[in-house]
Amino acid sequence: MITLSTISQVEMPVDVYKDANDRFRTWYFPSHDFTLRTLWTKFLVVGTQRVINGSASSVFDIHVDKIDMQWAEKLHEIDYAIISDGHWFFRKMYLYEGDKLIGCVFCTDTNVTNVGLSFAIRRAFQTALKFVNGCNECRDLITLIRTFSPAHFEHGTWNDGGRCNRTMPLSEGKVNLGGTEWEVRNVQVEEVERAMMNGWKRYRVLDVTKAMLMRADGHPGSHWNNNGMDGYNDCVHWCLPGPIDAWNDLLLGVLKKEPSLH
């Protein structure tokens, strides 16, 4: 986890809180009077999983204009927020605004417009950053957007034979800056720039996408006999030391530029 792995080398934290699903966590470092929190959300905005034939499906109803308060309600208690999101949007979704259906993603419905992945992510980030801008109690908050980090599935997706078993980084020339991952990254950066122009809050970008596109070797994949997900390779949740550790260096570099830290 970004930051926790770095700080815990100096001081072991007090495990203050963990919810039943291990999604909301709080750690406290007494000697540094520093609190670290993880606030979990699928889409930044309200998303409801559809139940089909009595079972949870992989289809979601997303209200792109309604913030997910489970994470957002805690922002006024935080000095620095790192927002990262994207992978949950890679599934069939129906989008609503003002409680009216406005489109879908990864769908083939004849009577609903497929608005595309980037539209859904853009609207979710717009709503999230609009909430930050309107948070009167968040006046000193610095919000950092960590851009999209690819999963590097090859020869299929997570549930149809995809794998991430490369052992060497890609060269810069082999990185695809025209693919979906880069498109998602551009949407995120554009919305941060828009928020900076239109708001009085402080925003920063942790732009990790290009560097992470090169690190296709960063996933354990089949090299650790990962069969925990019904035999599927997990190229998202587990990473080897190195690539994600670099995010800490980037975060520290960005924070060092903040006047409040000098």
Rank of each mutant, 00 (worst) to 15 (best):
A195K: 08
K174E: 14
Y28S: 12
A124V: 07
L206I: 14
T157C: 05
N186P: 07
R122S: 14
G242P: 09
V14I: 15
F125K: 03
G242V: 00
T127W: 01
L117Y: 08
L170G: 11
F153S: 04
H219W: 00
G162M: 04
G218I: 00
I82V: 15
L206E: 03
C104M: 09
T26A: 09
D217W: 00
G86E: 03
K130Q: 09
G231D: 03
E11N: 06
L95W: 10
A81S: 10
N159A: 13
S8V: 14
I52Q: 06
K130V: 00
Y28C: 14
K42Y: 14
K92V: 13
L75A: 08
V132P: 05
Q49C: 14
L177Q: 03
G242L: 10
N111L: 15
P169Q: 00
D22H: 11
V10H: 05
E193R: 04
N227K: 07
P243T: 10
V105N: 12
V184G: 02
C164Y: 09
T167M: 12
K257I: 00
T167N: 09
N53W: 13
T35A: 13
E137C: 00
V132A: 03
C164Q: 04
F119D: 08
G103N: 02
H32R: 05
H223G: 04
G242N: 10
I67F: 01
D65Q: 04
K18R: 10
R139C: 09
H262Q: 04
M229P: 03
L177H: 02
C107F: 13
D230A: 13
P169K: 00
T180V: 14
F106L: 08
F29P: 12
D65Y: 05
D109K: 08
A72E: 02
I83N: 03
R146P: 14
N21R: 12
G253K: 03
I244C: 10
W224K: 00
K92S: 09
E97S: 13
G173I: 06
W158T: 04
N233R: 11
I121Q: 03
H63K: 12
K256G: 05
W224V: 15
K130W: 12
D230I: 13
L141H: 11
G253L: 01
A20E: 10
E97H: 07
D207H: 10
M214I: 06
M229R: 03
T108F: 00
A246F: 05
L95D: 07
V51R: 11
V51T: 14
K74H: 15
V184W: 01
W88R: 06
D234A: 04
R194H: 03
I62F: 14
H237L: 06
G161C: 07
N186G: 11
A120C: 10
A81M: 08
H87F: 01
D22K: 10
T26K: 08
S8P: 01
D245Y: 02
T143A: 07
V208M: 04
G156L: 00
I82Y: 12
T38R: 07
V112P: 13
P150G: 02
L101K: 02
F106T: 06
R50N: 10
G47A: 12
G242D: 09
W182A: 11
N186D: 11
H32E: 06
N226E: 12
D99P: 09
G54E: 02
G116K: 04
A56Q: 12
P220I: 02
S55N: 12
S31F: 12
M212Q: 06
T127P: 11
E137W: 06
Y96W: 01
D160K: 04
Q70T: 15
M168Q: 07
